Amino acid sequence: MITRRGFLKFLGGGVGGMMALGGYSFAFEPLVRLNVTRYTLTPPGWTPGLKLRVVALADIHACEPWMSASRIASICAHANTLGGDVTVLLGDYATGMNLVTRYVHSDEWSKALATLSAPLGVHAILGNHDWWEDKAAQQIGSGDTFGHRALRDVGIPVYGNQAVRLEKDGHGFWLAGLEDQLALLPGKKWNRQWMTGLDDLDGTLAQVTDNAPVILLAHEPDIFPQVPKRVSLTLSGHTHGGQVRLFGRSPVVPSRFGDRYAYGHVVENDRNIIISGGLGCSIAPIRFGSPPEIVVIDLG
């Protein structure tokens, strides 16, 4: 039989453990840790001889104290040391929560991102929070958001259902960027009950004019079942790896497919997608088992 003293020791240990766990989840993992997660693959249809390193940053969610402009600049400085041929930004620069001490303006986070550099450039798409937090864009239902303007103003091209052909060592490849799949919130004005996407997969891929491999940038991974084999690799963010991962699974994932596209490299029917765990937090400033990460992909 457990004694009162033993029970109190057990309870104290439990409380201490919970406090330590809470401190790690709220302070250390989201604020201090930064992983570099590497993938190496040669997707079907990849051009022989084309060796390409892609550095990907996702879900920055700029706000203080969790993701200040100075921290973003520090992450960018680290990304610049990773030897990427091309750097891609996978959306959600705006904060996604109210538990902040200060909102970081788009002029600040965009100037921090402007410190990124790569031989073949820095290329961006937007995420759902970049649309949701722009009330003017929500009212219009289309057009530029403050995210589009902020990135373009610092020289970073933003792809909204657009494709561009790049070249390395005489070998071409395409970057194709989708507009967000959850861009417009429900509202009476638009007679909508569900979030509406502005993505156009078919129209984007129709801009590809040769047989060079295609890398698709899509903030939400839920588009992946519709992506044709013509696309060599899809890169996504959005899920944050569930923000909490236990034993390789996430209890809650913002995807209609649940844990299927929560995190990492997924291969389905000879098609490849890599889902970044991202850098910031949304809803609540908690990360456990899903530390902030920069993703490095070596292709070929």
Results as ranks from 00 to 15, higher is better:
Leu120Phe: 01
Leu120Ile: 04
Leu120Pro: 04
Gly121Leu: 04
Val122Cys: 04
His123Phe: 06
His123Asp: 01
Ala124Asn: 02
Ala124Phe: 04
Ala124Tyr: 03
Ala124Cys: 10
Ile125Lys: 01
Ile125Glu: 03
Leu126Thr: 10
Leu126Gln: 07
Leu126His: 08
Asn128Lys: 06
Asp130Pro: 06
Asp130Trp: 02
Asp130Ser: 08
Asp130Phe: 06
Trp131Leu: 10
Trp131Arg: 06
Trp131Tyr: 15
Trp132Gln: 03
Trp132Val: 00
Trp132Asn: 00
Glu133Ala: 13
Glu133Met: 15
Glu133Gln: 14
Asp134Glu: 07
Asp134Ala: 08
Asp134Ile: 00
Lys135Ser: 00
Lys135Asp: 05
Ala136Lys: 12
Ala136Ser: 11
Ala137Gly: 14
Ala137Ser: 15
Gln138Tyr: 06
Gln139Ala: 13
Gln139Leu: 14
Ile140Val: 12
Ile140Lys: 13
Ile140Leu: 12
Ile140Thr: 13
Gly141Gln: 13
Gly141Tyr: 12
Gly141Val: 13
Ser142Ile: 01
Ser142Cys: 15
Ser142Lys: 13
Gly143Lys: 07
Gly143Pro: 08
Gly143Asn: 08
Thr145Met: 00
Phe146Val: 12
Phe146Lys: 14
Gly147Cys: 11
Gly147Lys: 08
His148Ile: 07
His148Ser: 11
Arg149Tyr: 09
Arg149Pro: 06
Arg149Asn: 15
Leu151Lys: 07
Leu151Tyr: 08
Leu151Val: 09
Arg152His: 05
Arg152Asp: 01
Asp153Glu: 12
Val154Pro: 05
Val154Gln: 05
Val154Gly: 04
Gly155Asn: 09
Gly155Leu: 10
Gly155Cys: 06
Ile156Val: 14
Ile156Cys: 03
Val158Asn: 02
Val158Glu: 03
Val158Ser: 08
Tyr159Pro: 10
Tyr159Phe: 15
Gly160Ala: 13
Gly160Gln: 11
Gly160Lys: 02
Gly160Phe: 01
Gly160His: 00
Asn161Cys: 07
Asn161Ser: 03
Asn161His: 03
Asn161Glu: 06
Gln162Asn: 06
Gln162Asp: 11
Ala163Leu: 02
Val164Thr: 14
Val164Ser: 10
Val164Ile: 15
Val164Pro: 01
Arg165Gly: 04
Arg165Trp: 00
Arg165Glu: 05
Arg165Thr: 00
Arg165Met: 05
Leu166Gly: 02
Leu166Ile: 00
Leu166Tyr: 02
Glu167Asn: 09
Lys168Glu: 09
Lys168Cys: 08
Asp169Ser: 15
Gly170Lys: 01
Gly170Leu: 01
His171Met: 06
His171Val: 04
Gly172Pro: 08
Gly172Ala: 13
Phe173Ala: 02
Phe173Leu: 03
Trp174Tyr: 12
Trp174Val: 03
Leu175Pro: 06
Leu175Arg: 05
Ala176Lys: 08
Ala176Ser: 14
Ala176Leu: 07
Ala176Asp: 08
Ala176Arg: 06
Gly177Ser: 10
Leu178Met: 10
Leu178Glu: 01
Leu178Arg: 03
Leu178Ile: 04
Glu179Trp: 04
Glu179Thr: 08
Asp180Arg: 13
Asp180Leu: 11
Asp180Val: 10
Asp180Glu: 11
Gln181Thr: 11
Gln181Gly: 09
Leu182Ser: 13
Ala183Val: 02
Ala183Lys: 04
Leu184Cys: 10
Pro186Asp: 08
Pro186Ile: 11
Pro186Met: 11
Pro186Gly: 12
Pro186Glu: 09
Gly187Asp: 15
Gly187Lys: 15
